[in-house]
Amino acid sequence: MSLAMQRAARIGQNDIALAVGVDGSTVSRFMSDEKDMTRALTIIAALGLKVVPSEMQCFPPRKVQLLLELARDHLAQLENVEQLTWD
Rank of each mutant, 00 (worst) to 15 (best):
M1L: 09
M1A: 09
S2V: 11
S2D: 12
S2I: 11
A4Y: 13
A4T: 05
M5H: 10
M5Y: 12
Q6P: 00
Q6E: 08
Q6Y: 03
R7L: 09
R7Y: 06
R7K: 13
A8G: 04
A8H: 01
A9L: 07
A9R: 09
A9W: 05
A9G: 10
R10I: 04
R10M: 06
R10A: 13
I11D: 00
Q13I: 04
Q13C: 07
N14S: 02
N14H: 00
N14P: 01
D15Q: 09
D15G: 05
D15K: 10
D15I: 05
I16D: 00
I16F: 01
A17M: 00
L18E: 12
A19L: 06
A19T: 03
V20K: 02
V20M: 02
G21S: 03
V22H: 05
V22C: 05
V22L: 03
D23Q: 04
G24A: 02
G24F: 01
G24T: 01
G24E: 03
S25R: 14
S25Y: 10
S25Q: 14
T26H: 04
T26W: 00
V27Y: 00
S28E: 11
S28T: 15
R29P: 03
R29H: 06
E34D: 15
E34K: 15
E34G: 13
D36T: 06
D36P: 05
M37E: 05
R39Y: 08
R39W: 04
R39C: 09
A40Q: 03
A40R: 03
A40Y: 05
I43D: 15
I43V: 15
I44A: 12
I44W: 05
I44Y: 08
A45N: 07
A45F: 02
A46H: 12
A46P: 06
L47F: 07
L49P: 06
L49I: 09
L49M: 14
L49S: 13
V51M: 00
P53Q: 10
S54V: 08
S54M: 06
S54R: 07
S54F: 06
M56N: 11
Q57W: 00
Q57F: 00
C58T: 12
C58D: 12
F59Q: 04
F59G: 02
F59I: 02
P60R: 12
P60V: 12
P61R: 00
P61N: 01
P61E: 05
R62N: 13
R62H: 11
R62T: 08
R62M: 07
K63I: 02
V64A: 03
Q65D: 14
L67A: 08
L67M: 08
L68K: 15
L68P: 05
E69M: 07
E69C: 08
E69L: 07
L70P: 04
L70Y: 14
D73W: 10
D73T: 11
H74Y: 12
H74L: 12
L75P: 10
L75R: 14
L75N: 15
A76R: 15
A76P: 11
A76S: 15
Q77R: 11
L78C: 15
L78Y: 13
L78H: 13
E79Q: 14
E79I: 10
E79S: 13
E79V: 13
N80S: 09
N80F: 07
N80R: 08
V81Y: 14
V81C: 11
V81E: 14
L84F: 09
L84K: 07
L84W: 06
L84R: 06
L84M: 11
T85P: 06
T85I: 11
D87N: 02
D87Y: 00
